[in-house]
Computed example of a mutant assay.
Amino acid sequence: MNNNEKLFSRKTAPQSSARMVEAIYGCKWSLTVYQLLSSGVNRPGEMVRNVEGLSTKVLNQCLKRNVEFGILDKVVFNELPPRVEYQVTEFGEKFLAILDQLEALQQEIDEKA
């Protein structure tokens, strides 16, 4: 082997997933929305009624971002009055599992401090 040959190239952080994690943690309501969905609360009006301080405008922004990332899926029912529900996608399940691991890691760090 030649001494001038490089065995490894510089490793960089994954850009898209890192941005997703940053955006989700940057939105103070996303984790609350996931908690609501896991509790069976999947309609926006119901979410606003169940969380003090959560406005419809902010919730809609949060839900839209999560749908764009592919974490949540918006289900529109063709009925009157109109009904919309949100559900976690298959990709979202994987993403939420990673967030759970980050939370467990943080708890471990907190216990050592």
Rank of each mutant, 00 (worst) to 15 (best):
Q35E: 12
F69K: 02
P81M: 13
V88G: 03
L31M: 11
T12A: 13
N66P: 01
Q35R: 12
V58I: 14
N60T: 11
V51M: 07
S9D: 10
N4W: 14
K94S: 14
I24E: 05
V48S: 10
L80D: 11
E52P: 01
F8C: 00
V76R: 15
L36R: 09
E79W: 10
E52W: 00
N50R: 15
V76M: 09
E85M: 13
F95S: 09
L96T: 01
F95K: 05
S16W: 00
K6I: 10
S9E: 11
A23F: 04
W29L: 06
K6V: 10
M1S: 08
T32W: 03
M20A: 10
E5Q: 14
S30G: 02
E90A: 11
L54S: 13
P81G: 13
K11V: 15
L36M: 14
R49H: 01
W29T: 04
P82S: 14
F95T: 02
K57A: 15
F8V: 10
V58L: 08
E93G: 00
W29A: 02
K28H: 12
S9C: 06
K94I: 14
G92S: 07
G92C: 06
I24Y: 03
A97G: 03
P82N: 12
E79L: 15
G26A: 04
S38C: 07
A13D: 06
K11H: 08
S17V: 13
P82G: 13
R19A: 05
V51S: 04
T89F: 07
S39I: 01
E90I: 12
T12M: 08
V67P: 00
L72M: 06
S38I: 02
E93N: 11
E68R: 15
N78F: 12
C62G: 01
N66A: 08
G92E: 03
P44C: 08
R43E: 15
S55Y: 00
N60I: 02
W29M: 05
A13R: 09
M47E: 04
E93F: 10
C27W: 01
F95R: 04
Q35Y: 06
S9L: 10
E79Y: 09
K94R: 15
L59D: 09
N42T: 10
L36T: 01
E90T: 10
L31I: 03
F95W: 08
L80V: 14
L59N: 12
E46L: 07
E68C: 06
V76H: 09
L63E: 02
K57W: 00
V88P: 00
I24S: 00
Q61A: 08
L36K: 07
F91T: 04
P81D: 13
S16P: 02
Q61M: 06
V67Q: 05
Y25K: 11
S55P: 02
N4A: 14
T12Q: 11
M47K: 05
V51D: 05
T56D: 13
V84P: 11
E52Q: 13
N60P: 05
R83N: 11
W29P: 03
G45L: 08
N50Y: 01
R19I: 04
G40A: 03
V67S: 00
G70Q: 09
V48L: 05
G70V: 06
C27R: 03
R19M: 05
L72E: 07
C27T: 03
S16A: 13
Q61H: 12
G70R: 02
E22N: 10
V84R: 14
N78E: 15
A13S: 08
L63Y: 03
G92A: 09
P14V: 06
K6P: 02
T32I: 12
